[in-house]
Amino acid sequence: MILVYADHDRGVIEPLTFQALTFARDIDPDVHAVLIGGSSAGLNASTAAAELGEYGAQVVHIAGLSDYSDYAPLAAARALVTLLGSTGAQALIAASSPRGNEVLAHVAAITDRPFVADCYSIAIGAPHKIVRARWAGNLHEEVDVDAEAADVLIATVFPHITEATTAPAAGAITEFTAAVSQDDLAVQVINRVGASTGGVTLPEAKVIVSGGRGMGGPDGFGILESIAAALGGTVGCTRVVTSAGWRPHSEQVGQTGTKVAPDLYLACGISGATQHLAGCKNSKTLVAINTDPDATIMNHADYIIVGDVNQVLPMVLQEIQDAKS
């Protein structure tokens, strides 16, 4: 049996969790999911369990921890350690989300086991044979993981390598209690600030209009905002742009920014450094506009326009407006 830690925020399950469930089913169809929440964590157990069941969770283990706010990583890990002991799972899997990686790293540290992040494929055995991402997926690494040290394999699944598919299963709720101390709850969310402005965020955007050094400066992004607005999308940028202070870091797409997979990624004045490609190469359609036909981004694009963004983009905006009217 494989346990999948279901990352959620106030009861909204992280979509990558469904990919992790699909991935886990391929290793062993006997998949159980785990939800950790508290009275104030906004978790509706039956709704969440039904969703997880839809993606193949035979059983959904739920721990309702007292004094647990939205999220307390060490307390969640402590609960998972309890469950590993009582269920005899052969592996503990999660999505490679910030919370997924964090909670599983805590479990690994507590139990002194290896933790393998960002996996593409897992073959359980002696040793466990794993292919994982290095350099945010720009390199693939084959590793052997000692089966004695990893008697329970703890691993996260690289985003967007598996398409989440449904496989309806019972999703039967089993509540469990976990011994969690006040120390385990010392680090937890105590407040949330900067509530959503109603705009589309990068991870959820279907359309991302992104700019790089080629936009020339902060003023160059005005046209990208207009095109994004016309297409119901949002603006992204490269690390060079945020380092120069042209745009906020929250818009940065890439290895050290947000990794995205929109329907359309429009890369404007972006050369295509590995740092950036790591964040956008899973886009369904990638369009690049660049003066340099040999720029790396052109090899990763589905469609290209060779030209100066300052000339091409106003024409694109005009064409969109004409087409709409």
Partner: peptide
């Protein structure tokens, strides 16, 4: 406990980008 056996550069699917002009 985790031992590398090899590295590889993933085949970047040469997308054969369509030039829109």
């Amino acid at each position: 406990t985790t031992i590398r056996t090899s590295l590889r550069v993933p085949q970047s699917a040469d997308k054969g980008a369509i030039n829109l002009g």
